[in-house]
Design a protein around this nucleic acid. Structure first.
Lengths: 154, 154
DNA sequence: ATTGAAATAACCTCGCC
DNA sequence: GGCGAGGTTATTTCAAT
């Protein structure tokens, strides 16, 4: 559970972070390990929670969500109940991909996608503005995503 | 290439965005399709670029990167050459997971991870501050990530 | 305990209807 | 879209170190 990662584990994670659907045989070859040893390590990394999930990444533009906006939201208070209510509700908005509670003030930063700017205006007005305790919102539109990776340093 | 998505495609993408390593047989059952028809659709979605990649998502905390910071960077100019130089260099910093060019000003927003606050200070000083054209930086620490998903609305 | 190899069961892939 | 054959892969088991 609290096992430590050795060099081989890191090599495996490095590959899986970029090719999540690689076959065990190919993965084993890439990291210079026998198939069975490799398979056992991957199972351990999954069981111990180092690997949280395997997912397919879609091309946002082709799926019809080319607009990305960072929204900073300030709440009217910082009572635990208010934060909990906000977090419960914001999780139900599918356009919100990420929600982070920020240090210092009782502010959240959301990463939001939309079909276009009109669609974002709708999400902003009808969904975000109605979340519990919202006092102010500041939106920053991404003109272009230079790059976006899910791979942590290994 | 510019094919449109029908209801079945969307069901497939919905599942794959959450279970990227599901077997084709199980996926077919989930969306009520025969295995071969399902397989053909997935192949088409991959070939046409709707599916960009399959990746493993790691537990940042367990891998030793529990600290997440949003860094807003303003450049000293907005000449194309400067933006290109900046983008070329920032892509080489493994702690930077995302880089977005923001509308309005010539600013970038970076999503950065680090081992702890001291490590972030090091990245900030030795890597980010030395990127081409950096004029100012403002860092916002995430106290807690409420949630984080890669799944677009379907 | 950890490894590699062999065996089995499940799966993918493709041609065909 | 569905069916079926043939090759591939995942996963377990077991012997050896």
């Amino acid at each position: 559970m609290d096992s430590t990662l050795d060099e081989m584990d890191r090599r495996i994670l490095h590959v899986l972070q970029r090719q999540g659907r690689i076959s065990n045989a190919d993965l084993a070859e890439r990291v210079h390990l026998s198939a069975s040893a490799c398979h056992r390590r991957v199972q351990r990394l999954e069981k111990d929670g180092f690997i949280r999930d395997y997912v397919a990444l879609l091309t946002a533009r082709k799926i019809g969500y080319p607009t990305m906006v960072f929204v900073e939201i300030s709440l009217s208070g910082q009572a635990d109940e208010l934060l909990e209510a906000f977090e419960r509700e914001v999780a139900l908005v599918p356009e919100v991909l990420e929600c982070h509670l920020m240090a210092g003030t009782a502010d959240y930063i959301l990463k939001v996608v939309a079909r276009d700017t009109d669609d974002f205006a709708r999400v902003h007005r009808q969904k975000l503005a109605r979340l519990p305790g919202v006092q102010g919102m500041q939106s920053s539109f991404a003109l272009r995503t230079v790059f976006k990776t899910t791979a942590l340093p290994t």
